[in-house]
Structures are given as C-alpha cells and as structure tokens.
Design a protein around this nucleic acid. Structure first.
Lengths: 120, 120
DNA sequence: CTCACGTATGAACATATGTTCAAATGATAT
DNA sequence: ATATCATTTGAACATATGTTCATACGTGAG
C-alpha cells in the first residue's frame, strides 16, 4: 500500500495530538456542518442573493423581481424554486400573481451580517 | 422579435410600479451583491465549513486538519488555497509546518450565526 | 370555452467545482 | 549534499450548477 488515503496521511508523524484531542470532542457533527454548508450554498449565488436582498425590502411577485434584476421570469422562477425548497422564502397566490417574501429571520440576519462584512 | 429577453419580460403588464420604484433606489449595487454572494460561496462547501469550524476552535496545521476531517492533506491544502485567496484564513510557518487560523472576525460571526440557524 | 398572461417546469448546454493522483517545493536533520 | 517529511501544485476526472429556450400549467377575462 504505497498510495496515501485519508486514513494514513501523517497520522503518527506531525499531528499535534494535544490540540487535536482537545478539539475533536468540541466539534459539531459532520452532518450538522453539512447542513450549515447547504445554507451557505443557497446564499452563494449572485442571482439568489439579489432576490433575497430585494425580498428583504418588500414582498414581490416574480415579475417584479424579473424587472428589478433585469432577468427573465424563467430564470427568477428557477431560483425561487431553490429558495422555496430551502424554506428560505414563502409565497402567497393572488390571482395570476405569486407574491414571495422571506420566510426566515435567520436568513435576514445572515444577509445583513454578510453585507456588513462586504461594506467594511 | 418574438423571444423574450431580460428587457421585455412583463415590464408593462404586471409590474407593481409603486413597490418596484420604492425598492429600486434602496437596493445595494449589483457589484456589492456579487461580492456578498462570493463570500457565501466560500462558506458553501462541506469541507471548507468543517475546516473553518475547526479553526474557530484553534490554530491548526494542515496535517491536524487532515486528521480531524479524515481527509488527505492534498484535499485540505486545495481548500485552504481557496480560503487564503478569500482572506478568510491567515497562516504562519514554523519549520515544516504551516499553521492556519481565522483571519476575519466576520467569518466567525457568519459561521456562528449560521450554526444558530441550523441548530434551531 | 377560449384566450391571454403570469408562473412553473424540463431538457440541453456551457461552465464551475471538488477530489484524487502524481509530482514538485521547501525545510530540517543527518 | 542527501534523505525525509509537511505542504503545495497541476492535471484529470466526475459531478454539480445556472441560464436559456421551449413548453406546460393555472387563473381570470371576455
């Protein structure tokens, strides 16, 4: 077995056991961190961030967003599907229109926290 | 011109002009929101989130992280490159080892804000 | 019912992304 | 200098992702 795999890479040589052993029990589960990365992945798209930022200012229908972002309704709708699946936005139907709004105050906080970072 | 493009999708029909005109001047620039999405994109990866979470607990060398995450040093190093480019982590060299740590308190806040969301 | 329109969906496409393997650095010790 | 080890890098690969186009769905008006 000459090739490295995840198990035997410098496990006995360079690992600082004291630190690693202290941290290991403090770390959140892999599953939880996977969920965390999924949330960030949802926010990690130019179009979706713009949609969410717009929705943080007001409830909007698909057409309004298409107009605000200067994109096709189809492109907007595809992204709204992703945001719906992630329970980041909610919607109500009114005749032919579907009005979207933010469903989660945490997302609002994340967007604003991120904005503070970028604006600095 | 029969096909839709971004300009002429339901601009005169369904747009709620009052709302849209109120929001438009309040929206951050497309460029700023692009930067914002880039930050979230950095955090939107399973491996990188795990690295950052570990680093939020202690300074670590590549080998420690490979051990903690049960991955190859190469895979870790590739992701650290991304994190370095985004100025999310900083590093110091000590002999053969390279110790990484978080470089940005905003990232720490974002990770924890996100965790609060996921833990709820 | 039929039409128009707002919205949603599916397929296709190009592009981006993460991991692996192999090889190359850079530093320490002998 | 040579060997060894931690880290980095490059190429290749498979997979995921976002947009466009065409089409379908669902509602309200005539």
């Amino acid at each position: 077995m000459t090739q490295n795999n995840a198990q035997d890479v410098c496990q006995t040589e360079c690992v600082h056991e004291t630190v690693v052993n202290t941290i290991k029990p403090k770390m959140h589960s892999t599953e939880l961190l996977l969920d965390l990365s999924e949330i960030f992945k949802i926010l990690g798209d130019h179009t979706r961030v713009r949609i969410l930022h717009a929705l943080s200012l007001s409830e909007l229908c698909v057409c309004d967003m298409a107009n605000l972002l200067n994109m096709s309704s189809s492109a907007i709708s595809h992204q709204l599907r992703v945001l719906r699946a992630a329970k980041v936005v909610k919607f109500r139907k009114d005749g032919k229109n579907v009005f979207y709004s933010l469903d989660d105050h945490h997302i609002f906080s994340l967007i604003n926290e991120g904005l503070a970072h970028v604006l600095e």
